[in-house]
């Protein structure tokens, strides 16, 4: 009995950042719901990996988090989404932008100014921050993402990976507690993709809650502590990446396990459930 009370006491301190309760959403003009009866809880400090086939509802799920649904996208919404205790239907996208930063797939469509520092300043200017604070945050964010050298570069001249880092920087400057990324590496080369994954891990270690919708499981699963698989607007699997990626049923939903998983089956070390090459090697040595 005492144990249960202590457990509930601890639970009080694990803060729920986002609660999605029974959300069904149908876009205007569509007959099929993009999300049906989705229930999800994201806690402070989580690194959540969202995966699933294209059209499975990943992007729609992310749009729920900062209120783009229902404020920007019209449609029929049931259920509710609480972000840091606030119902997204009652808050504006702008006020939610200080809590949840959303980064999109194509960096070209989200960079709106002509120079890197101005891009990072843009959101802060819109929110009416004083100049000194803007300058401080630009420096802080550039340093955090290790892109100080890009500060005065024209945005048009950046590479895809650099553009995506700048897009992340411009969102981070607003100091959100949660950063959500919708297939951030789909337009990037392998090196830049790895860089994004690495940066997200650093941000997560610093206490930012990360939600990332991705297909590149090799890259992101070692950093994530939670993972969900989506299919036809439903969350079909939920758990830790280590647990989920070794489930055979994953293939039914069109999710191909990373090569490390395949190799560990091949070498008969799948009971150790390695997720990185390093872990696989350790498992092989210990055999």
């Amino acid at each position: 009995m005492g144990g249960i009370i202590i457990f509930f006491d601890i639970m009080k301190y694990v803060r729920k950042m986002i609660e999605i309760e029974g959300v069904t959403f149908t876009y205007e003009g569509s007959s099929k719901p993009a999300l049906s009866d989705v229930n999800l809880r994201i806690e402070e400090g989580d690194f959540l990996l969202v995966t699933g086939l294209s059209g499975s509802g990943k992007s729609t799920l992310l749009r729920l988090l900062n209120g783009l649904i229902p404020h920007f996208y019209r449609g029929k919404m049931e259920g509710r989404v609480l972000v840091d205790g606030i119902d997204t239907r009652e808050a504006s996208v702008a006020s939610l932008s200080k809590k949840v930063g959303l980064v999109f797939q194509n960096p070209d469509n989200q960079i709106v100014t002509l120079r890197v520092d101005r891009e990072i300043a843009f959101g802060l200017e819109n929110l009416g921050f004083p100049r000194e604070e803007i300058v401080r945050r630009i420096e802080e964010v550039l340093k955090k993402l290790r892109i100080e050298h890009l500060r005065y570069r024209p945005t048009n001249e950046l590479s895809g990976g650099e553009k995506q880092l700048v897009a992340i920087a411009s969102v981070l400057a607003m100091r959100p507690k949660i950063i959500a990324l919708d297939e951030p590496t789909s337009e990037l080369d392998p090196f830049s993709s790895a860089r994004i994954a690495y940066i997200l891990d650093i941000l997560n270690r610093e206490g930012i809650t990360v939600v990332v919708a991705e297909h590149k499981l090799d890259l992101f699963s070692p950093f994530a502590n939670k993972m969900i698989v989506m299919a036809n607007g439903h969350i079909v699997e939920q758990g830790s990446p280590r647990e989920l990626l070794y489930k055979k049923e994953l293939m039914i939903h069109g999710v191909r396990p990373p090569s490390v998983v395949k190799l560990s089956y091949e070498y008969g070390v799948s009971e150790n459930k390695p997720l990185t090459l390093g872990e696989l090697l350790v498992a092989l040595r210990g055999r």
């Binding site: 783009l68 959303l102 469509n109 709106v112 969102v171």
Partner: peptide, 25 residues
């Protein structure tokens, strides 16, 4: 592209405050 841009602007609080400040000096 315009649609995605509008989405991005929305998430960066474009046009919310009348008192927009300016970083450039």
């Amino acid at each position: 592209r315009g649609h995605q841009l509008a989405e991005a602007l929305e998430t960066k609080a474009f046009g919310v405050s009348d008192k927009r400040t300016s970083y450039m000096r």
